[in-house]
Design a protein around this nucleic acid. Structure first.
Length: 244
DNA sequence: CTTCGGTGAGTCTTAATTTA
DNA sequence: TAAATTAAGACTCACCGAAG
């Protein structure tokens, strides 16, 4: 939103007096809109009609905005499970179709404690979104770009290294998605791993924050979309075996 | 300001119960 | 008996707030 605002403000400045009045901050402030009409459609129509921009310039502004906000829609999801399961798990399965949904036929002892199964490897998926660190406000308004240097803390939680062999973490920014793959041991012994969450699970469950201040320490585990499965297999050879 | 142990709230799954 | 409804529990991630 910030960058689009800047671009439009810059364009308005180059217009004639009349146009500047029509698009002044005060006018825009008072502008009453009902979906799908809004401030942007109003400004852009004026800019085109005043010949400040032409249709091609509009199209280029539009497509670069879309590029900068490809994944913004993911911040519209409010319910944790809708994001974590409906989106994140399905998304990973689309990228890596080889991963199987576990059930009693793949693993007789399966009771929902991990998310995917591949060739005897138990895989747990966790996802988190990068948002501005501030209390209140909707997620979509706090969504961060990978280039922003505002502070954030992605909370990967309810991590149970005893229940799976490999973790796949998905970090979502409004313009990009990052993937990290770690063995259960790499999580358990990670210096940022914080033990203890939810009463009754104190020994088994922990959490970890990937923050603007420590994200580089995880580059070691970052993996390109195309290599996720290879990395899962590689990491599964390093994990500490859990006994049924 | 950041950290990190913990709670909160929405959704889904499964089991239990009621209804037809 | 089978289907429909309700209740219980598990699983998801965001967020809080005391302590540093």
């Amino acid at each position: 939103m910030d960058k689009l605002d800047k671009i439009l403000k810059g364009k308005i400045k180059t217009g004639c007096r009349e146009l500047k009045e029509q698009l002044s901050d005060e006018t825009l402030e008072e502008l009453y809109s009902v979906y799908p009409f809004n401030k942007f459609e109003y400004i852009i129509s004026h800019l085109i009609s005043g010949q400040i921009i032409d249709i091609n310039e509009y199209l280029s502004i539009r497509s670069s905005y879309i590029n900068r906000n490809k994944y913004l829609y993911l911040f519209e999801i409010t319910a944790p499970r809708t994001f974590g399961e409906t989106w994140a798990q399905r998304h990973l399965n689309e990228i890596v179709p080889e991963l199987q949904r576990p059930d009693k036929t793949t693993d007789p002892y399966y009771t929902g404690e991990y998310d995917f199964w591949y060739n005897n490897i138990k895989i747990e998926v966790k996802a988190s979104r990068a948002v501005r660190r501030q209390s209140g406000g909707r997620l979509i308004e706090k969504a961060l770009s990978i280039e922003d240097n505002a502070s954030f803390d992605m909370n990967f939680q309810q991590l149970k290294p005893d229940c799976c062999d490999v973790f796949v973490w998905i970090g979502v920014w409004k313009d990009c998605i990052k993937y990290w793959v770690l063995s259960n041991e790499e999580v358990r012994s990670n210096k940022y791993f914080s033990k203890g969450q939810h009463r009754g699970n104190k020994q088994k469950e922990g959490q970890l924050w990937i923050k603007n201040s420590n994200i580089d320490d995880f580059n070691l585990y970052a993996v390109d979309v195309r290599h996720i499965l290879d990395k899962i297999i590689e990491k599964s050879n390093q994990h500490t075996h859990c006994h049924e």
